[in-house]
């Protein structure tokens, strides 16, 4: 069973809950989708989106579009935002060495649960592509 989903809005913390709600709907629509696949994909989506909320410039003025496709063999999503170019490409994709460090784990966590995480700057927008193969 396949399906497509789209969510557009402002890249602000409150919008993260709309993404959670959308992913919950994906689970209801696709009972064949394994719970752990969806859970790990949701973890990645929220980290990547949270990264845009935290670092997007100008703060509070960035809009985004989230497009998710459920395919028989994978989950694939693209988050495109209107913010300025992300400074470090995929900077931050390695887990911090100090376990007591409070931040810097977001993209590392997303990288750990995805089969692919790509960043692309194109047409004055940032594009994050996330892919997880279904178990």
């Amino acid at each position: 069973m396949t399906g497509e989903y789209l969510l557009e809005g402002l890249a602000v913390p409150e919008s993260l809950n709309l993404l959670h709600d959308l992913l919950e709907r994906v689970g209801h629509d696709h009972p064949d989708l394994r719970a752990d696949d969806l859970m790990l994909f949701e973890t990645a989506v929220i980290e990547v989106a949270g990264n845009v909320v935290e670092h997007g410039q100008p703060p509070g003025g960035v809009t985004w579009a989230f497009h998710l496709t459920v395919l028989p063999d994978r989950l694939e999503a693209r988050l495109s935002d209107s913010g300025e170019e992300y400074p470090g490409g995929t900077w931050g994709t390695e887990m911090p060495g100090d376990p007591l460090q409070e931040d810097g784990r977001g993209l590392a966590l997303a990288t750990a649960v995805l089969d692919r995480l790509d960043y692309l700057r194109e047409d004055d927008a940032n594009h994050w592509t996330m892919l997880r193969r279904r178990g």
């Binding site: 973890t43 929220i46 980290e47 949270g50 409070e102 931040d103 977001g106 966590l109």
Partner: peptide, 8 residues
């Protein structure tokens, strides 16, 4: 659910 800010 928890994310990295929650872990922080």
């Amino acid at each position: 659910f928890i994310d990295s800010s929650g872990l922080g």
